[in-house]
């Protein structure tokens, strides 16, 4: 079950990156004794002034950093990975989102 939940979370982050138009996405999952760390990164190639990538990223970061809810995690996890960023936020403990020089890096932490 835990592995499936991690796969869903990777899928949620991957979906977001694809929607931003990132063409080369690097993803990494580290399973440690007490915590799972999911990293995803890539260049948005977003050079237009009109592009609202930064705004979208900020909003996504906020959604990922809402409180983790064990009961929601247990009941609704099957819906993660399908444009359900709040759910992803409720399934992780913390996310670090950085966006510099059009390069996005998201690291999500999920305590076991």
């Amino acid at each position: 079950m835990e592995n499936k939940k991690i796969a869903k979370l990777v899928s949620e982050l991957m979906n977001f990156c694809l929607k931003l138009g990132i063409k080369h996405i690097k993803s990494e999952v580290e399973k440690e004794a007490e915590m799972i760390k999911i990293s995803i990164e890539g260049s948005t190639g977003c050079d237009s002034v009109d592009c609202n990538c930064a705004e979208k990223i900020e909003r996504f970061g906020k959604s990922l950093n809402i409180t983790r809810e064990a009961q929601v995690d247990q009941y609704y996890w099957e819906l993660a990975g399908e444009d359900n960023e709040y759910l992803a936020g409720m399934m992780i403990d913390k996310a670090e989102v950085s966006y510099k020089d059009n390069y996005l890096k998201i690291v999500a932490y999920r305590k076991k």
Binding site: I66, E69, L79, Y86, M90
Partner: peptide, 8 residues
């Protein structure tokens, strides 16, 4: 699902 207004 899942839009928890109290949490959000």
């Amino acid at each position: 699902l899942v839009a928890d207004f109290v949490t959000l």
